[in-house]
Amino acid sequence: MTIEVRNVCKSFKDVDAVRNVSLRVESGEALALLGPNGAGKTTLVEMIEGVQIPDSGEIKILEKTWAKDEHFLRKEIGLALQETRFQDRLTVEETLGLFAGFYGLNQVRTREVLEIIQLESKRDTWVVQLSGGQRQRLALGIAILPRPQILILDEPTTGLDPNARRDLWKILEDFKSTGTTLILTTHYMEEAEFLCERIVMMDQGEILADGTLAQLLDKFGEGDLIEYVIDGSNPTDETNLLGGVLSCRWDSETGQGNLTVNSISETLPKFLDLIKNSEVSLTSLECRRRTLDDLFLAMSGRHLDE
């Protein structure tokens, strides 16, 4: 086992940031900590990184603890913190070279990493002149410099445009094949789905759910969704009669409603017939599978991006 977190708690003044969390991460596993802002993800990973000390509980990494083996663990963990700003007037290569020096690595590794993060053409560019995506790639490059056994990334793509996000995902996907254990915090469900086999959903300092995407959807998110907006009176009294409907919701003020159904193909034609025969007009219709955000909403009453 690579990481074992046992009954860990952490508070800041009167806020309980992490409440009695336990977690085990196996070697080579890719785990996403998913949750909205303030869920406790960053505090948890900072305790794993040795940046914060737990108020209670125990964290073991590679069978070692921060109190006794800090120097060893610093060499084995690569990390990218939220919002690190590197020195503006050092070049990309100088920044990588400086951090390589901290790990006792030479220029050969610096050049390898430059290639991995696809910043060879920017090697002589000052950090201040890089785009947001390029800076995040540099942060990732510094994280992977020492060929760490564990890579921890705290919201690596927050604030990036979709293209820059996909570039970073591609690099991470390639890097995962080296067998490194990956822990990623994010509030983007697509990121968690794309990069990690295992997803841990957190809210208010606690773990709400833990499993693969399929396990989570099977366990907590039975059924598909039909979402609609209508102009007129409420047809939902009769939707329960359609068959295959697990639950339904209706907001009379906005006209928005949704049905959770066993099978979209079975229920949708009946729903459309019902609308046609009633005194209302359908202004919007969307049918989709349930997502992690739906699960999270069902469990916590909040959306992931809140």
């Binding site: 610093r74 990390l79 913190l81 690190t84 590197f86 901290f102």
Partner: peptide
């Protein structure tokens, strides 16, 4: 302020 101090001390330096 730039959180670079925190990043530097997270290395074996």
């Amino acid at each position: 302020i730039k959180k670079l101090l925190r990043r530097i001390v997270a290395t074996p330096l």
